[in-house]
Amino acid sequence: MIRKGERCFMESRPYVAWDVMNRFLIDAFKGYGVPEEDAKICADVLLESDRRGIESHGCNRFKPIYIDRIVKGTLKPVTEIEVLKDTPTTLVYDAHDGMGMVASYRMMEALIEKAKKYGMAGGAIRNSTHYGIAGYWTTMATKAGMIGVTGTNARPSIAPTFGVENMMGTNPLTWAIPTDEEFPFCIDCATSVVQRGKIEYYAREGKDTPAGMVISHDGSSMTDSSAILKALVDGTAALTPLGGAGDEMCGYKGYGYAAVVEILSAALTGGPFMKALTGVDQNGNPQMYHLGHFFFVINPEFFMGLDTCKKTAGDICRALRASEKAPGHDRIYTAGEKEWLAWCERKDKGVPIGEAVQREMIAVRDQLKLPYHFDFEAAI
Score class of each variant (00 low, 15 high):
residue 4 K to F: 13
residue 9 F to R: 04
residue 13 R to L: 13
residue 14 P to K: 09
residue 21 M to S: 07
residue 21 M to V: 13
residue 23 R to S: 13
residue 27 D to R: 07
residue 30 K to R: 13
residue 35 P to V: 14
residue 40 K to G: 04
residue 43 A to S: 13
residue 46 L to N: 03
residue 47 L to N: 04
residue 53 G to W: 10
residue 59 C to Q: 06
residue 59 C to T: 15
residue 62 F to A: 03
residue 63 K to T: 10
residue 68 D to P: 04
residue 70 I to G: 06
residue 71 V to M: 10
residue 74 T to N: 02
residue 80 E to N: 07
residue 82 E to D: 09
residue 85 K to Y: 06
residue 86 D to A: 00
residue 89 T to Q: 09
residue 91 L to I: 05
residue 94 D to I: 04
residue 98 G to M: 12
residue 103 A to W: 07
residue 103 A to L: 04
residue 106 R to E: 15
residue 109 E to N: 12
residue 112 I to N: 09
residue 128 S to R: 07
residue 132 G to P: 05
residue 148 G to S: 06
residue 150 T to S: 15
residue 153 N to T: 03
residue 157 S to D: 01
residue 158 I to G: 08
residue 160 P to L: 06
residue 168 M to T: 10
residue 171 N to P: 09
residue 171 N to F: 13
residue 172 P to N: 10
residue 176 A to M: 06
residue 178 P to N: 04
residue 179 T to L: 06
residue 183 F to M: 14
residue 184 P to T: 14
residue 188 D to K: 09
residue 190 A to S: 15
residue 206 G to S: 11
residue 209 T to M: 02
residue 210 P to A: 15
residue 214 V to I: 15
residue 226 S to C: 00
residue 230 K to W: 11
residue 236 T to A: 01
residue 240 T to K: 10
residue 241 P to F: 11
residue 242 L to Y: 03
residue 244 G to F: 02
residue 245 A to S: 04
residue 248 E to F: 02
residue 252 Y to H: 15
residue 254 G to P: 08
residue 257 Y to L: 14
residue 262 E to N: 00
residue 264 L to R: 00
residue 269 T to F: 01
residue 274 M to A: 14
residue 279 G to I: 07
residue 281 D to G: 03
residue 289 Y to G: 00
residue 295 F to L: 01
residue 302 F to T: 05
residue 303 F to K: 01
residue 305 G to R: 12
residue 306 L to N: 01
residue 307 D to R: 06
residue 307 D to C: 00
residue 308 T to V: 11
residue 318 R to E: 12
residue 319 A to Q: 12
residue 325 K to F: 02
residue 330 D to H: 11
residue 342 A to G: 02
residue 344 C to Q: 09
residue 356 A to H: 07
residue 361 M to C: 10
residue 368 L to R: 08
residue 369 K to F: 00
residue 374 F to H: 11
residue 376 F to H: 08
residue 379 A to E: 14
